[in-house]
Design a protein around this nucleic acid. Structure first.
Lengths: 277, 277
DNA sequence: CCGCATTGTGCATCAGGTGGACACTGGTCC
DNA sequence: GGACCAGTGTCCACCTGATGCACAATGCGG
């Protein structure tokens, strides 16, 4: 079991051991698409694909005919071979590369939760805000929010955003500032050079992004956050969120900063390894 | 019937009217993937997907379980929603954007063949060569080559290559020259400034790329080619190939250049319209 | 003119995809 | 705190519909 607490659904089945057997024709169809993709120019004959997939020739034919009718494949007029179309892109356009980080973050966040008890989030940049991609809010007994994943945290007034802002590459920060000036809520900060300078200096001096009720939407909520690097570039941040009346900033930092850094380093190792397939 | 002659296979069925009924579970699985892609962050719950696709909830579940086992989807630990993975990319990575041109080229080449009788090819740049993506060699009674699609035509000694080389953007041409200098066969031309200058000047003055047996592999084969533009950028070329002993260059140009230009313009219109779906 | 390789077609079989029914959980509204 | 509801997990019997066999047709090379 990956997480400590389960709130929703009854599933304890950790992902792949579901009692279902796969839908065969879907599996085969996807195999087929992959085989086509592997071929030079995404172009192959019926026989090529049959041997590549190990499927019966007529089965391949029928699957291809289906893919054609659905518009994922066309048959070239020039040599009757099968060719990929633009529509195949629609099967992966929703995937953003940042998702890579999220995919491996689950276990890391879980173990962080065990040490810290307070909930934390994994965030990646998204425009003038940080996008929460994974979170342990559901699993923390101390959590005060319900659904967090998918929410946006404004860049300049949250710990997660500040950590990213301070540690991203210089040219990226310049673009961010331009974007932030367009943001109705954050423009006043983005235009305030003193504010920005202080923010950068403090954050870097401390080594973490911090926030104590600066984000007006929240009451007395505090948070600290650290960046996650890939190839020497910041790609995400991890935060820990606590109630300020329960624990002071000093104490939070002394207790949680080191686990946060450890989690970030774990993530970096996993990223460097590459996602298994 | 799109083309004049059919040599291979017995298929006169123009693509989509095949007598097969679609493989339903494959269609549904792909619909599902698309639905996930359309959702914000490629993330959705079971119920979301069921309503989005109009499928029964348990059906969606089983399909998703299959997609998970195959690695295209993972289930987020944070909120049990379904999320796309990097592997979905493998379903479309083989697709190159140049394919867009090829997809609409078939009918244009077919009508060009009817006017010209000699075979022609649609080529897109690929490294230091032009890649033949569609062709009417199979359909021309005057054809002298078998399979052409997928073959590479060296950039500097073929009509198709020269047309592209002369009409592509300046910065792209600079990169091309760098590449060509690495090419064992073409380096001697790429390093010859006079050759390059003459080539550019002549090609542009004439308005078409030409080749009369310059490509050593061929005997007395001639060809002329014109560029195809998209957004004011050359993206492909169309050529016509003839036997030099059957027809002189003068005559070939006077007869075929105008149909070639018309075909190029037709293609440009189709490209501007965008590919349906 | 004949074989070989590749692809198209029709069809009987039964694996397997489907969706109904029921159970369970957590959240919300009085 | 009790009751309701939305969302999900699990099981299973039915019957669709996916499958691959056998046969035919074609073009190509010799």
């Amino acid at each position: 079991m990956r997480f400590v607490r389960r709130k929703r659904g009854m599933a304890v089945n950790s992902a792949n051991d579901a009692g279902y057997s796969k839908v065969r024709s879907l599996v085969r169809g996807l195999e087929l698409l992959q085989a086509l993709n592997r071929n030079e120019q995404g172009r192959a004959s019926l026989a090529d694909l049959a041997t590549a997939t190990g499927l019966h020739r007529t089965t391949v034919r029928r699957l291809l005919e289906t893919l054609i009718e659905e518009g994922y494949v066309r048959r070239s007029g020039s040599d009757d071979r099968y060719v990929l179309t633009l529509k195949t892109r629609s099967l992966s356009e929703g995937f953003t590369h940042d998702e890579r980080v999220s995919a491996v973050a689950g276990p890391v966040l879980a173990s962080l939760l065990q040490q810290v008890r307070w909930p934390s989030d994994l965030c990646t940049p998204d425009g003038a805000a940080m996008l929460i991609r994974e979170s342990t809010h559901r699993f923390s007994a101390l959590s005060f929010h319900r659904t967090m994943v998918g929410q946006h945290l404004p860049m300049l007034v949250t710990a997660a955003g500040r950590a990213y802002f301070a540690y991203c590459a210089d040219d990226e920060r310049a673009s961010l500032v331009a974007l932030l000036r367009q943001d109705p809520f954050q423009a006043k900060y983005a235009n305030d050079a003193r504010f920005i300078d202080n923010l950068l200096e403090q954050t870097r001096a401390r080594g973490y992004g911090a926030n104590e009720g600066d984000w007006s939407e929240e009451g007395k909520v505090g948070a600290i956050a650290v960046p996650v690097f890939e190839n020497a570039r910041a790609v995400a941040t991890i935060n820990v969120i606590y109630l300020a009346r329960a624990i002071g900033r000093e104490e939070a930092v002394s207790r949680y900063l080191s686990p946060l850094h450890k989690a970030a380093r774990q993530l970096e190792v996993l990223l460097a390894k590459g996602v298994p397939d």
